[in-house]
């Protein structure tokens, strides 16, 4: 009816077609499968759900995954900041190579990282042997899980904080100095506060990744129930035992947790933008 009259909207063609294809593809690959998971979990009564989650083994697996991921993310936060500082602020031989190296945990397949870390930290490994002499055992203990989680999390902090530190206006440092601040004051009162949103975002991303991590962890973990068994592995074990309900319940809890984390990250980024609008 309106063909050729007023009220048509888009100048560029193809919106209807491309949006339709996008929504279809998104639904088929992502939304329907994820909805299926939630649908499956509704087949469980609340009691069943609760007893699965509060069983000793599930609870311990969740504790190990979330607890160690949190600890690893803290280490990543501190080390990430140090690495970013060195890469952005200082010039040293091999700086560009080290800058590129930060991405290796992103690029290296997790299974490869898993076997490599295990070989490195095993009792006869390059690092495992000297550590064993000190009485420290890493591989096949919770410490191994911790190490693997640090490995996969480090790029998240570095890559979120790095651009912010680069963009930080050098004039504000001069301003602080001209107002009589010494270097420590300038760093702690002017620079670090501007990095807080990026640091928290990087922390949350590293944490979320470590909680769900599977490939790089299971080789080095030892996988002892209640001691060094992570939640994703427990899902896989329950699946192989055909205990779909158990697998679904654990998965739903983890999924909700990661959605909350992503939500938090989005809020953080919005906060950072309103607090410090891009110049």
């Amino acid at each position: 009816m309106n063909n050729g009259g007023a009220g048509r909207r888009n100048t560029l063609p193809g919106f209807g077609l491309t949006m339709g294809l996008t929504l279809t593809w998104l639904s088929v690959i992502i939304l329907i499968p994820l909805a299926g998971l939630f649908l499956k979990s509704f087949e469980l009564s609340l009691d069943q759900f609760w007893s699965i989650l509060t069983s000793r083994r599930t609870l311990n697996a969740l504790k190990i995954s979330f607890g160690l991921a949190f600890a690893a993310a803290i280490v990543n936060l501190v080390m990430g900041l140090i690495i970013v500082w060195a890469l952005v602020r200082y010039r040293f031989p091999g700086r560009r190579i080290f800058d590129a190296i930060v991405d290796i945990p992103f690029a290296l397949p997790t299974a490869v990282a898993g076997v490599a870390l295990t070989a490195l930290f095993a009792e006869k490994g390059w690092l495992g042997a000297p550590l064993a002499e000190l009485g420290i055992k890493v591989a096949f203990t919770p410490a191994g899980i911790f190490v693997a989680m640090i490995f996969i999390g480090i790029p998240f902090v570095v890559r979120t904080v790095q651009p912010v530190l680069i963009d930080l206006d050098a004039e504000i440092e001069d301003a602080a100095a001209s107002l009589g601040a010494n270097r420590w004051n300038t760093v702690s009162r002017v620079i670090l506060p501007s990095l807080v949103p990026a640091l928290l975002t990087g922390f949350a991303l590293a944490f979320a990744r470590a909680v769900g991590e599977y490939g790089s962890v299971i080789f080095i973990a030892g996988n002892l129930p209640n001691v060094s068994e992570i939640a994703p592995l427990l899902i896989v074990i329950r699946l192989s035992e055909f205990r779909y309900a158990d697998a679904t319940a654990i998965a739903v809890v983890m999924l909700v947790a990661s959605f909350l984390l992503i939500f938090a990250v989005n809020r953080l980024q919005r906060w950072a933008q309103t607090r410090m609008p891009a110049h």
């Binding site: 996008t22 998104l26 992502i30 939304l31 329907i32 499968p33 994820l34 299926g36 998971l37 499956k40 997790t110 979320a208 909680v211 769900g212 991590e213 599977y214 490939g215 994703p232 592995l233 899902i235 896989v236 699946l239 779909y244 697998a247 679904t248 998965a251 983890m254 999924l255 990661s258 959605f259 984390l261 992503i262 989005n266």
Partner: peptide, 23 residues
């Protein structure tokens, strides 16, 4: 829509497989 497209980044790989087993 952008957040929905981003979803797989925040889903544990094991769960990404699990959803297809459940289907």
């Amino acid at each position: 829509l952008i957040s929905l497209i981003d979803l797989p980044f925040s889903v544990s790989p094991v769960i990404s497989g699990l959803v297809f087993v459940l289907l």
